[in-house]
Amino acid sequence: MPNRTQPPSATARSAPAPAEHPTGEAAPEAPDSSTVLDDLGIRRALMRIAHELVERNDDLSRLYLVAVPNGGVPLARQLAANLREVADAEVTVGILDTTLYRDDLLARGARPRLRRTEMPSVVDERVVVLVDDVANTGRTIRAAMDALMDFGRPRGVQVVALVDRGHRELPIKIDYVGKNIPTQAGDRVELLGDAGDLEGPLRVVLRPEGEGER
């Protein structure tokens, strides 16, 4: 059954797109995958985005960083640290799992694993900044916005993505992009840590269509 978060050209393939890995677990890294953004690049990008957040938001006390797990979580934490450093601002960080809002639940069969949701503050009157690792079709951001509305009525919503790989299927605009990476529809792009988890140095890898899948 086609996974509808994938672009049409990928429907004949068995592997789902990386950001929507069905079990939520990081796929094992293929030896020939290439790093398109290393740890230093990621830290530079997040520092730049922190500056942009300060520029575009007058009242930093209203900011509420909401991470889309799993990749968004270390990025949001780093952004909060950067905001403390550049603007002496204490910004709340929340985690919002979008799984139950996805539009691609199969009729029957394995269900995606649920992830943690932790929303320590109310969202009413806050400017919520959704933080995701890879922006692709826009469906995850759509799901995150729907979920967010169930927590209250934010004053505004902005979106951070470390990588924008294109192929948008919904009218979703990314406000802050770490790096634009041109990709083919079937490529896999993902944020990885050293040991398969997302602790320690991070990097973004791109695996062209068909690689590391046999």
């Binding site: 139950l100 729907d146 169930d150 927590f151």
Partner: peptide, 8 residues
């Protein structure tokens, strides 16, 4: 949650 409902 304030809205105790998800669209799943």
């Amino acid at each position: 949650r304030p809205v105790k409902k998800v669209p799943t």
